[in-house]
Structure formats: C-alpha cells, structure tokens
Design a protein around this nucleic acid. Structure first.
Lengths: 182, 182
DNA sequence: TCCCTGTGTCTATTTTAATTAACAGATAGC
DNA sequence: GCTATCTGTTAATTAAAATAGACACAGGGA
C-alpha cells in the first residue's frame, strides 16, 4: 500500500479536470476503483495503474517521477529569471530548474557591440527567435542578415552561426532551442 | 499485466547478483512471487513492487525510468511572418514553411480582452514563453497568474490552460512549443 | 553413490485487488 | 418542492495477486 499513489493520482486527475467517473470511463476501469486507490485503501497493480494513466496520457515513469522534481513551477517572474550572462550578453533562461525540459526558452539582451565571437557556434538541434528591439546581425553558414524589431530566424543549430549587435543600443530577443542546449 | 516489468526486474536482480530467493528474503516476500512477476504471469501491486525494490534499494521512479535512457530559409522579416490570427489574437509563426520543425516559435499579440476561451486547451508537448508588453492572465490546471513584461511561463501542454488579456492595452509575447502544435 | 544446498518453477490456499451495484450529498432545471 | 444528473463513497461479490509448500534439476563434497 503505497502512501503516495493515492494523493498523486488525485492531484493529476484534478489537474486534468476529470471526475473519478470520467477518468474511469476513459481508462476502462470502474469509478469505485479510482475512489479506493485515491484513498490508499488498495494498492493498484502496476497493470491497473498503467491503464488508468493511459487516459491522460501519462507513463508510469512520469507518474513516479512527477514529484521528485519538486512542484513544477509554471510562472517565472522577470526578477527571478536566472541570468546566465557571459560578458556583454545577458541570457535569462525560462524554467531553468525544470527537469527534462524538451526545449530552452531564453530572454536575451545584447549590449551594443556584443558578439558571440569569431569561433562560430555549432551544436545539435534547432533554434529560432524573434527580435523585440534594437538591431542584431545574424550569420549562418556564411550568410549574414541584419534583423530589426519583429524580424525572426530559425535554423539547424549544426550550421555554424554567430550573433552580433551591430547597432548602438541594446538588442533584445526571445529565442528557443530544442533539444535544450542549456 | 505489464509486459516490461518482468524483464526489468529480472535484469536488475541479476545486475545486483541476487537469486530469486535471496531477493525475496531481503524484500520480505516469497520467492514464488518473484518468479511469477519475472514471468509476467502476475502484475504486482505497486506496494509489492516497492517492497521488492526496497531490497536493492531502488525507487519506483528509478525502476520505471531505467531504460528510458534511448535548404531552408533562415531569416523571416516581420512583414513576412504569416498571421494565423483567430479573432482578437494575432499569431505570427516563425519558419512556418519549414518541413519537420522540432518546435513552433510564435510572436503573439492579444488585443485587450482577447481570450483563448472557456474550453481549456490541452494538447501534447510542452510550451513556454516570455511576455514583452502588456498584461496577460495565464490559467493552468485551475491556477491563475497575471504576467507582466519580462515575466515568463513554462508548462506541460497536456494540463488544461487558457490565456486572457485582462488589461486595456494589447499584450505581446513570444512563445515556443515542442513538438509543434501548429 | 548419497547427501546437502543451491537454483527456478508450479499447485493449492489465503489474502487482496477490482467489480458491481447500491447509497448519500450537491447542484441545476422545471 | 420534485426530478434529473452529477459528484464521491461503500458493502458484497468476483477476479487476481501473494503465500506456503512441494517439486525437479544442478553442482559440490564426503
């Protein structure tokens, strides 16, 4: 009789906005069983639990790891975003503490003249972003563009690339990359 | 009757160099039970499985995650970003034409009062974003927050969610989601 | 050879999980 | 108020998991 399983299942069910009967119907089990499990009055077989989780859908691995990563924060205040600054470039990572993120979202500020450097970046995955203010020069695979507010980019991160603020005011952008490179 | 559990337990037991009887003794269960589980002839209750794993020791989370260890355009000008607007919400998708994108990056503008609606959204994947201007109310799994410029969010897209501009000026944000939902 | 101790498997029994079908409380509509 | 429909809980029954104990096989020693 695992003391955690009941509370865990109930929390997930409520997060998905389902009633015991609704969940039971989708999972192909009885509502009574959901009730008993949530009260920790029975210890479901892993087969049954798997069947139930299938309704969300969610794997057993996700179920049992869910609260190991603490309460999954959803909202991150501007002041709380950790700054991974390297010199003249400010990188603020969204959901930095979240385990197993499928992507990284960054709020970036390039000071005037800031540059990722002559040694071009290459790494696995894809990345893209939208420029919010200022001017930013992007170089990918030998080509260069100057991007302004509202402009955007997207490319395969394996292509050698570089970002540089060629203007005289800070350049701001929001970028994302997957799988997470940070 | 989970087809994986038997093989998984057997592999771990052998990795620890234990016999069925030895494991059973340490776990406080019978050797016959270990035998039946390893043959997938029964689906152990999570309580029993937990008891057995306690002999290694190993958590349920570790048990179920163990084998989970397995010429495009680059720049898009603001004016060229296709607008997938639906009513009062403007969605501009970056790299819309790119094949097999691993994520979607969107530049969004919510007019005052704009709302994704009472029917909460749920879909596969993860999503996150950064608010650039205005105020936006985010509701996820029954909780609500009001986000301002610089604030950010990140959550599992399967959780029912909703965006709403509760302010009187347009709200701007950049969001990303993976795998692409658009 | 015989005995001992180890291995994993299997049957009959007991215990527990899961189902069925009912109950009581809350809410909405007539 | 009454009816309909939702919610979660629960007693009695059925189905399945867990136990106890026996079985067969293998490898060492004496």
């Amino acid at each position: 009789m695992n003391a955690q399983v009941g509370e865990q299942l109930k929390a997930i069910r409520l997060a998905f906005g389902l009633s015991q009967r609704e969940l039971a119907k989708r999972a192909g089990v009885t509502n009574g069983m959901i009730s008993l499990i949530e009260q920790n009055r029975v210890s479901p077989s892993v087969g049954s639990l798997q069947k139930i989780l299938g309704a969300f859908p969610m794997t057993l691995a996700e179920f049992f790891t869910r609260d190991l990563r603490g309460p999954d924060d959803i909202v991150f205040r501007a002041a709380d975003l950790p700054d991974l600054a390297t010199g003249a470039i400010e990188y603020r990572l969204v959901a930095a503490t979240r385990q197993d993120r499928k992507m990284s979202i960054l709020s970036e500020v390039y000071a005037a003249g800031a540059d990722t450097g002559e040694d071009l970046l290459t790494h696995a995955g894809e990345e893209g972003g939208v420029i919010m203010a200022g001017e930013l020069e992007l170089t990918v695979a030998g080509k260069s563009w100057v991007l302004g507010a509202g402009d955007a980019y997207y490319f395969d991160s394996r292509l050698p690339h570089r970002f540089r603020n060629t203007g005289d005011v800070p350049a701001r952008l929001v970028s994302a990359n997957t799988p997470p490179s940070i």
